[in-house]
Amino acid sequence: MFLRRLLSRIATTLVTLLGVAVIVFAVIRIVPGDPVAMMLPPGATEADIARLQAFYGLDKSIPEQFFIWLGGVVQGDFGTSITTRQPVLGLVLSRLPATLELSVMALVIAVALGGTMALIGTRQRYTRTEGAIDVANGMALSVPDFLWGLVLILLFGVLWPVFTISGRVSPNLVPEFTTSFFLFESVVRLRFDLWLDLVQHMLMPALALAIPLAAIIGQLLKQSLKETMHLDYVTLARTKGYSENHVILREALRNAVLPTLTLIGVQFTFLIGGTVIIERLFSYEGLGNMAIDAVINRDLPLIQGIVLLFALLFTLVNLVVDLLYAVLNPRLRHA
């Protein structure tokens, strides 16, 4: 049963990815901007242009190009980057860990911040504290992540420079790492000096990504907790002698989390999308930053590779959310 569900899930994922590939492939070839023209000096002859176009396969029709590319993809060959002349797969995979670590860090911060706000707001419901939390949430929500990024740079990079607001890690420390998962590696190897340097670089971009998401989580979870607090089983638990905190955490939280979880899944994919601009803002060497360079340079194979990877990430996030949902909701487990 589980296997069948998994297989159908993988099938839908593949169809989604194919659709994404078709659209991206078409769009970046239809919009103006020729990669070959950008590579050649101004005085290049027609013959030079034609030779280079033939070299990259750009002289063929778009459907033809697509099937050649797709044929490579299924064999694990995503083509060669036009600007760096390196295999796309290697380039993309070398940057993926940086973006993953940033996104996950942002998610953890968002859940911690939003969850705390929701719990405090529920504990202090109908008081001024709840009002203050609502106002703070509203403010956090009405400012998009990249503006938070600018605010943070201004505050903690310029006015009170306690954080490093550029890059992923101090350049002289890069040789210390053997994998690309710097943050993860520093924890596993218990190198807290490296960890500290990483966090100093990553905290601000992660926070900028996390603040709007934290506000959404805080608002929705608080709402759902407050509703749950009126339910009969919570009232019954109150008669058993428990404190308010105990009732919230043990009786209400687990049920209230379910609707929030679905939303976190959707919002997390938005957050991953947000990394593109945030990484640029903080000169963070991740996929998003690479994507912007690729678009500027009309590096078609690289754009395709990155977009496809993002699409894969999104579907994976949704899959994880569905699995978590089943774990937390006993009513779904046997269905």
Binding site: Y233, L236, A237, T239, K240, R254, P330
Partner: peptide, 14 residues
Amino acid sequence: ALIPQDPLTALNPA
């Protein structure tokens, strides 16, 4: 202790 009115809603589903 309380014996509540509606047994369908008085037990924590999770």
